[in-house]
Amino acid sequence: MRNISDIIEQYLKHILHESPEGAIEIQRSELAEKFQCVPSQINYVIGTRFTLEKGYLVESKRGGGGYIRLQKIELPSLGTLQIHILQSIGSHIDQTSAEGLIYQLKEGKHISHKEAGVLSAAVSRDVLAIKLPLRDEIRAKLLKAMLISLLSK
């Protein structure tokens, strides 16, 4: 059974996908009421599952007329995707940013779920058991090489 965070995430992704503008504005309290949870649960879902690394732009205004605006950021076309990857990764990348990029590529259907799993496993800090900053440099080189190879199909 899915937990409430998964349900809220799927609901937000669904209404975002259905939005002709590619963006939605929601009220935290209304969403919390709809899912019968506390507003901090909404904050948690948005803060962890709708990040810039995962391809979302979040704008929040608190207060009486406050809202949360979510917008999906689309990746460039495949022709410019490799350049985007090289610029995004740079000479080093931490695990959270790497996982966010992999997630974004999976969500954009540039890589499969299985490929995303392999990439995540390969760049994990458990596998790259090396001290920083060398670990982030090796992760960047590995991730670039694997993604360029996968996206050159």
Score class of each variant (00 low, 15 high):
M1N: 06
R2C: 00
N3P: 04
I4Q: 13
Q10K: 11
L12F: 11
L16A: 12
L16N: 06
H17L: 14
P20M: 01
E21W: 02
A23P: 01
E25F: 09
E25K: 14
I26G: 13
R28T: 15
R28W: 07
S29F: 04
L31N: 07
K34N: 11
F35D: 12
C37G: 09
V38N: 15
V38R: 12
S40M: 14
S40F: 10
I42W: 11
N43M: 08
N43D: 15
Y44K: 13
I46T: 05
R49W: 05
R49Q: 13
T51A: 04
T51M: 09
L52I: 11
E53T: 02
V58N: 04
E59Y: 10
E59N: 14
K61C: 06
R62W: 11
G63V: 11
G64D: 03
G65Q: 08
Y67M: 03
I68K: 09
L75T: 11
L75W: 07
P76L: 12
Q82E: 11
I83A: 15
H84C: 08
Q87H: 12
I93Y: 02
I93V: 07
D94K: 02
D94V: 07
S97V: 00
G100T: 07
K106G: 01
E107F: 09
K109E: 15
S112G: 07
K114H: 13
V118L: 09
V118Q: 01
L119N: 01
A121K: 01
A121P: 00
V123W: 00
V123N: 00
A129W: 00
I130F: 14
I130V: 13
K131F: 04
L132K: 14
L132G: 01
L134E: 13
E137L: 03
I138E: 05
A140W: 00
K141L: 12
L142H: 02
L142E: 03
M146Y: 15
I148N: 09
S149G: 06
S149V: 05
S152C: 03
S152R: 10
